[in-house]
Amino acid sequence: MTMHRDTHLRTHCAIDPDGRVTFRLPPGPALRPQLLLRLRPQKGRPETTLHLLDLEPGRAGGQLHAVLEPHPALDEGRWDLYLLPEPEAERQRLRPGLRDLRVLVDGHLRDRPSPVAVRVPYVTKDGFLALRAWRRTAHAEVRAIDVTEQALTVEARLHGAELHEGATVRLRLRGSDTVRDLRPRIDDDGRGFSFTAGPEDLTGSTAGPGRIWDAFVRPAADAPPVRIGRLLDDVADRKHVFVYPALTAGGSSSRPYYTVDNDLAIEVTPAESPICPK
């Protein structure tokens, strides 16, 4: 039989705790093969950012290796991966092989310096290998979310910055200037914190049906807001995996969820409408 046409482009990858990614491709006829990383542009926009890595024969089985070092940090976004057989040749998009991401599983346990840079190899919806990258001056990693009948409570830990006396959690109503500031409980180490939001914080005159609050923490009274999300493990697409119940009160239903970028948001909908987490 004929094999999948793309079989020879199945690429194994493994990541180490520092974020170094090693790619392994089956050997091919190319003389000077390179691995091309392309930051996926917005629809209709030209591509602007490319990285090239040399593919070199490794020790075992003549496979080609390329190493993406932790530095420089990649720009935040989705990076598509291609094989470039020759400098002028047509590039071929890579299919995923095994992705050994085991060291990422407990990545939230290590405190990160600023800037917080994260990469997670993943498989795109149409079945190609890609790399999800985040790069943030600071980042607040959610650890647990508790939802009761009265309130929702988020436990998180700040990376790349320290919490001070006047720290606040800020909920910003998407597409508007409306904000709600909440007082967090701060752990002694100035990193861990938690906050509780009740129905009164999430609904009210300004928040109509179908509104979304994005969640930030301001480490000090005058500090720029830091996004709260969940980036420090092996899950690149969390939205439909980490699913939370809704807090229902006063005719509204408030459900915490992760956006397609793994940032924390809270969606407020009228309680009588059927809730669909998708």
Binding site: A144, I145, V147, H240, V241, F242, V243, P245
Partner: peptide, 14 residues
């Protein structure tokens, strides 16, 4: 998972 309040511990991964 919701009824047993296990959403921080049990995940349906697809």
């Amino acid at each position: 998972i919701e009824r047993l309040r296990l959403w921080n511990n049990v995940f349906l991964m697809g």
